[in-house]
Design a protein around this nucleic acid. Structure first.
Lengths: 188, 188
DNA sequence: ACCTGAACACCGTTCAAGT
DNA sequence: ACCTGAACACCGTTCAAGT
């Protein structure tokens, strides 16, 4: 009612343009490129999304949905606790590194309620928390969703920064997973 | 002989200015601030240090010395393998986060021979490698210096991004350390 | 109420002119 | 051989004028 039709249309065009530009050039891509591709003036972009993170936040719902799906899939893995946890670590890192720079932004926002993407970071922590709950006593005592999200985020930043391939990534994920599992009593 | 006295003096003034500016404002501080504080023209800065990383590389020797000292201290810790490894993880993270943004730059350079700070990243990997060697069979098989440096760098990025305090950092370091140790046989 | 796009600020980088 | 600093390019952000 109170939003003009052209405002709504520009809002959608900006989101679509940002989706493309961020995918092609990463999350630090120039914002005037977004405005240009959306076919609107620079001021219109800033009216709808005052900061880069506001724009990012609006784009991230689909990302959060995929992250939740990865957590669900990990919890449902028919195997050992180790396999379930590894599934989440792999799935989480894969989603968080979907766009270059996303891992650093999300991890930074994990402890920051003032962040414009605070709700998305919280969803990341909650997805991790669901995995923590599902693993129960198989997980190292005292680990919570925020801690798990930070560790996954840290690993994702390493992958993002160093552009690691699977063979370089796998041993790091193994270290993280084994450190997260409760110590097992062998040979008793 | 072939370097003019004013060139040498400008070189030193730039390093001193960069040390101050990077400490105060982080590694992404404006370079013209460095030139201004050194009292030289912008072109002089670019003549001596064509890229930001060249300037950083020249500043990092002292940093590498401290990193080596942290590795030595860790190896010399009079305690369990776990305590020695924890000492390195804590010391390494502390040094790598000395300046904001350093963790990301160093970790990115770990796999990149073309990086202008490649020698410094290699020193980071070598210091980690010395800890790996010192721990021998107490460490998880297959772990090398580059992997350990990546994990320490990842944790350092989490601390850097999220500005974590000791109470938030400690449990993450514990997870990493336990994942890095060889599985122990308990109760056999 | 919202839009446009020129204008300003900031910073990296180059290069003509100077010594 | 090296230095200076004006000039250019790029990009974020604001705002006067328009509809």
């Amino acid at each position: 009612m109170s939003v003009r039709a052209d405002a709504k249309r520009n809002h959608d065009k900006l989101l679509q343009a940002a989706r493309e530009v961020f995918r092609e050039r990463g999350l630090e891509a120039p914002l005037d490129e977004v405005a240009r591709r959306a076919g609107v003036g620079a001021g219109t972009l800033y009216r709808h999304f005052p900061t880069r993170d506001d724009l990012l936040n609006a784009l991230m719902q689909a990302f959060i949905d995929r992250l939740d799906a990865a957590a669900d899939a990990a919890i449902a893995v028919d195997g050992s606790p180790r396999e379930r946890l590894l599934s989440w670590v792999r799935g989480g890192v894969a989603e968080v590194t979907y766009s270059k720079g996303a891992a650093a932004r999300l991890t930074a926002a994990l402890g920051d309620d003032e962040s414009r993407i605070a709700t998305k970071a919280a969803a990341f922590a909650q997805a991790s928390g669901r995995v923590v709950e599902a693993l129960g006593a198989d997980l190292r005592p005292g680990v919570d969703g925020v801690q798990l999200a930070r560790l996954v985020g840290g690993l994702a930043m390493v992958v993002d920064q160093g552009e690691l391939d699977e063979s370089a990534f796998a041993p790091l994920a193994d270290v993280l997973v084994d450190g997260l599992l409760a110590p097992t009593v062998v040979g008793s």
